[in-house]
């Protein structure tokens, strides 16, 4: 399976993602934001980081970069696109995903392990996944998901909420909401479920020495689903 990770000026999880994808068997290529063509890919990843220094709004400048039109075309033709953290912010700024990631409710940068409950596994990203509660890592200042009431209703009606922040035993409550995200939303899909944006970093949990391996479950399963 071929994957491509897009690098923007200020991306800082691009190499972690490259390591993770290769570890589980993807043939990964790194693609510079100023290119206009994507290599042949089964999966495009927009990595975490601080593209363009988070100027204007997180992800807004990257959302207008040269490579983005190819990513949009790829996504609209049904290609699999994964946006992690800043990648999620970029996806909302392009309009591929609904809503926006606002500043965390308590105005603090949050860097810690959290738990998410997978809400919909009828898609390439989570189909047949062994666990429905994963321990992943978050590191962000703007992860407070927000959308309009109408958008929230359509996300819920179309089963587009990918994952909720939850407790270690899968309880979705205020206490396990790290950043004030509406309804504890940690990640969402587009309508066709071929685009996933989420704040937690699976690529940071692929080895016991990185404090956990639930990210491995995600990548192994994703590769299996694509074969």
């Amino acid at each position: 399976m071929n994957s491509s990770v897009i690098i923007f000026p200020g991306s800082n999880c691009d190499r972690d993602m490259d390591v993770a994808l290769k570890k589980f068997g993807f043939k990964n290529k790194m693609v510079w934001h100023d290119d206009d063509k994507l290599p042949k890919s089964d999966l495009i990843v927009l990595p975490g980081g601080f593209s363009y220094g988070d100027y204007l709004r997180c992800g807004s400048i990257a959302g207008k970069s040269k490579i983005i039109q190819s990513v949009i075309d790829f996504a609209n033709s049904g290609g699999l696109v994964l946006g992690i953290c800043n990648g999620f912010q970029i996806l909302t700024e392009t309009g591929l995903l609904k809503g926006v990631l606002q500043q965390n409710k308590n105005i603090e940068f949050i860097c810690k392990n959290i738990f998410v409950k997978i809400n919909n596994s009828e898609n390439k990203f989570f189909e047949n996944i062994d666990k429905d509660v994963l321990e992943l890592h978050i590191a962000h200042n703007e992860g407070n998901y927000f959308c309009t009431k109408d958008e929230l209703k359509s996300l819920e009606d179309n089963n587009q909420i990918a994952a909720y922040y939850c407790s270690s035993d899968g309880k979705v409550d205020d206490k396990s909401n790290p950043n004030g995200a509406m309804k504890n939303i940690a990640g969402i899909f587009n309508e066709k479920k071929n685009i996933l944006g989420m704040m937690p970093h699976p690529e940071r949990m692929i080895d016991q020495s990185l404090s956990g391996e639930d990210g491995s479950i995600f990548f192994e399963n994703l590769l299996k689903n694509l074969k």
């Binding site: 204007l56 709004r57 807004s60 207008k64 700024e93 809503g99 926006v100 606002q102 927000f146 959308c147 309009t148 958008e151």
Partner: peptide
């Protein structure tokens, strides 16, 4: 197109 995100 750029300066404002009209969702918020």
């Amino acid at each position: 197109k750029l300066l404002a995100n009209q969702v918020i």
